[in-house]
Amino acid sequence: MLPPGVSMLWEDDDPAAALRGRFGFTGLTAVTGWLTTLLRGSWDLGAGPCSRLVLSGDGAVAWVCSDGGEQLVVKWSRATDRFDRLDATTATLEHLTGAGVPVAAPRRARDGACRVRAAGPAGPLSTAVFPELAGDWLDVSDTAAVRDAGAWLARTHAALADLDDAVADRVPPRSDVPLPERVGTWLTDGDPGHVLDASRRVAGLLATAPGPPGAPQVVHGDFRAANVLTREHRVVGVLDLDDAHRAHPVEDLAQACTYLTTRFRDWRPTPPQVRREFLAGYCAVRPLDAAERHWLELLALWFGVCAVPGPGDAAGWAAAV
């Protein structure tokens, strides 16, 4: 559970200074006043004081209780260049809810919008309201929960493959550069050389790779322990599709395998046994063909090499690859 009051999700900045500098709020009292006006005016909701607020980059998440007793989460972003993307990725949540994926569907505003662009003290903010999902962050020592997480990523991919084109086309691609070219360019121009043996293995796998692994589609984009809630060894919540983008599902799977263990300030590679259980859960729902298996090996290794910070590698990323 995140602490009461104002806190930083992963940065070391002073929370009060960040709240004032990024969003113009002088404290929780000011946030509560702004939220009261926003929720009443745009959502016809009354709410009590903001009890908990966490800041992360250009975004913030606030917890409030409605006057009807419902626990709500209000998210906002000041990143104006991402407002259109957030409109689209928030709309995907309603589709996922209809497909049975345990996400928090956005509460529609009075005008029917999933998100509302509101005036904040320091500039425009893109805002959305969700019901709070209760659960514990994924514990990767819980084998059953890890397998279930893999299964839910597969189900999420399957559901997103059926997303309406009008929504999917508004979600940006991860990159405009084709996947083989992207890996090849990194090998020649971007590899810092921290783990040369692993980089050579990436090059070998790329040289023998089949064509791209299927068609790109909308994918989660940040599936890891910090964004998966569990209860009694089962997934009860899939969080945070703000970074959803269009990519090959196997690329999203490889990223999840690499970063599954990570939570906020705890940034460690995924142990091999955890990765095997996660993949077993995924493949039980969505089996991989030969091309996808090849690309999964290649991409998981590539993501792992990219995660190596250099000589100060206390978490052991280099050893993991």
Rank of each mutant, 00 (worst) to 15 (best):
P216I: 01
P216K: 02
T188W: 01
F223G: 00
A225V: 10
A215G: 06
R231T: 07
D197P: 03
A166L: 07
Q217H: 06
A198K: 02
L229K: 03
V218W: 00
H220A: 05
S199D: 10
D197E: 14
T188R: 15
V235C: 09
N227W: 11
D191G: 03
D222Q: 12
R170D: 13
V228Y: 06
A203H: 11
E232D: 15
R170P: 04
A226I: 05
V202A: 09
A166G: 11
S175A: 15
P173C: 04
R234M: 03
V167D: 00
G237W: 14
R201D: 08
D176H: 15
V177S: 10
V228D: 05
A168C: 05
T188E: 15
P213K: 04
V202D: 08
R201C: 04
A209C: 05
S175V: 07
L187A: 10
V183D: 13
R170I: 01
R231C: 03
L187C: 10
G190S: 10
D176P: 14
P192E: 01
L229N: 01
G237M: 07
R200Q: 13
R234T: 11
A203P: 04
A203C: 07
A207C: 05
G190A: 07
V171S: 00
R201Y: 06
G214M: 08
P210K: 01
R182N: 02
E232V: 04
L179H: 11
V183R: 08
V236E: 08
P173Q: 03
S199R: 11
G193A: 06
P178W: 14
N227K: 11
P212W: 14
L206F: 12
G184T: 03
D189C: 08
P212D: 13
V235M: 09
T188S: 15
R182M: 06
R170M: 06
D222W: 10
P180T: 05
D169F: 00
L196V: 12
R201K: 10
L187T: 13
S175P: 08
A207K: 07
P192T: 00
R201Q: 13
A225G: 10
L196H: 09
D169Y: 00
V195P: 02
G237V: 12
D164T: 02
P192L: 02
V218N: 00
G214H: 11
V177N: 12
D191W: 02
V177D: 13
G211R: 01
V218R: 01
T208E: 15
A207T: 13
G214P: 05
G184W: 02
A168L: 04
L206H: 13
R200K: 07
V171M: 01
G204P: 04
A207M: 06
R224V: 07
V202C: 14
R234Q: 14
R224C: 14
E232A: 12
H233R: 15
D189N: 11
S175L: 09
D169V: 00
T185D: 15
S175H: 13
L206M: 10
H194T: 06
V183T: 10
T208H: 09
V202P: 11
A203L: 08
V228H: 08
L206I: 06
